[in-house]
Nucleic acid binder design. Sequence first.
DNA 1: CTGAAAGCGCTTACAG
DNA 2: CTGAAAGCGCTTACAG
Lengths: 325, 325
Amino acid sequence: MTLDEMAKQLGVSKSTVSRALSGKGRIGAETRQKILSFAEQHNMLQETEQKKNTETRNLGVVFPADIYINGNPYFQECLLGICEAASLMEYNVMIITGTAVDISGIQRLVEEKKVDGIILTRSLVDDKAVKYLIDLHFPVAMTGLCDYNEVIQVDTDNELASENLTSVLIGKGFQKFALIVEDLSYRVNRKRYDGFCNALLKNGISREMQMVYTGNLKMELLDGIISDIVTHKVECIICGDDVICTRIMSRLQAEGYRIPRDIAIASLYDSQNLQCFTPAITAVNVMGRQVGDMAARQMICYLQKKKYESKVMMDYEILLRKSTK
Amino acid sequence: MTLDEMAKQLGVSKSTVSRALSGKGRIGAETRQKILSFAEQHNMLQETEQKKNTETRNLGVVFPADIYINGNPYFQECLLGICEAASLMEYNVMIITGTAVDISGIQRLVEEKKVDGIILTRSLVDDKAVKYLIDLHFPVAMTGLCDYNEVIQVDTDNELASENLTSVLIGKGFQKFALIVEDLSYRVNRKRYDGFCNALLKNGISREMQMVYTGNLKMELLDGIISDIVTHKVECIICGDDVICTRIMSRLQAEGYRIPRDIAIASLYDSQNLQCFTPAITAVNVMGRQVGDMAARQMICYLQKKKYESKVMMDYEILLRKSTK
DNA sequence: CTGAAAGCGCTTACAG
DNA sequence: CTGAAAGCGCTTACAG
């Protein structure tokens, strides 16, 4: 379709059409709108061509630079899953760093049209990045949960994992637990706490009898917590993650407690070092690689207008090891 | 430069120039050649434009999918450094997975001209990826060392780190060590062993008196190693990395040894969990983030024809903690 | 095989 | 703000 043809159909001159499409020269807002919307309707051809041009077959993944420093390899595992799925579906993966406050990298990637969609690897309560992307109607997926339905969400069911681990431990005969998780204002910690309570309820065990430690768990507080646990004759400690678990475990061992004979211990998040302990520590494996893989798959299906799930809860494994007999 | 201008300079008509450049229509082979070679000489403009078009301002980073599964977060830290440097210098980062045998992802990225250069995050003895890239004269950097001078290499000086840690420990009064590193056929383990020996030599301590355990260190062998260490009255254990260290540390604690009173322990590679132990464990911090940052910087300088270093040895930190008093 | 000329699709000073 | 017209850079039947 030439400018001349369009001009005739619209009853304007080809100069005007030219001005409307190029954006150069003076033109009335109304005329311009008329021409542009006409173009949008009839340029099926050009549109698909444009799409081919703007389709990058790249996915953007945001590396949360502020929280994974010296941290656990969850992001890395997630990324591996994303890369593998992307590669299989002939997409490439582009990485930018982002923090809770600095989303300039994301903005640059979006504005320069370097990617077709973006995968975030964590959820903040009030995420600037999510808001920015949703406002632009830019495709977003997340490994984790959030309150926006537009966002493709893939997560491990941390609540169910916590409930199941607790139930398994109850099945092994433990009745008196200590649950140690950090700040409950984090969604994941709240889920773990809820799952723990669910298991107690379903198994008819009193919540009142249990010891729960939350908040900022500094090294200095551990002695107090451990002596409290011992005083209250806790049979099994459930730790929120591998860092807390390592701290508690090593402290218990240093003080001469025999695991699991004197006290059992388990973690709601596995890591390589938990199986290096003597005894190896029972833990929930959240399988970040599969989460990443699934998030990338759903995102690509969405981009290709195929069938996709906007919310997926992934399986986890409970790795029973010797720390709980 | 327009067809008309070219036509005048060449003394032909613009029709002929058009035919030569488009390849359509009848044209004499000689005339065509004349026009094409003229175009080639004078199209400095178009050539630089082409270069701008093929310059992607993307760096490729290869995620070694086969060795980091459930592993330590070194790759992740390295990647963070790469991303930060790239972002600062207005480059983007593209990730592909690769294994020792499968370099198809790398090939695709190179053939489709998605990146200007590639950063590998490990060195294999006989690396297919490196060979492939060097043969194509494609820019390569590596976090680690290799034998090709064409490759930009950035690494931690593991030998010096091992020597220094050992020297520091000797300075603290230890004379009898056990060194536990995996397979010496890996470059990094060999370096660590060499550094250990250097320190002994410089401090006039007999190598004969020391205990060295290498090879495949399965969990089952640990009991034997530990009883051997105790029998020989080792004063300080130096572990090759955090996994070995966690295994040894936990086993020692489970058996009731008091650290560092009965025996001291240190690791040649730090990780988050080593500071979670009671007592926290002395370790070498290799700072993967800085290594990645430096590799990306050198690569970008090279791509931009700026001054760069083809081989950089990075600093490390020795984190003295309570496990060595 | 080659050139003069017509023509296409687009842009843009100029006039209103 | 808009259109008629000039003009630009290119391609291509036509004639030789």
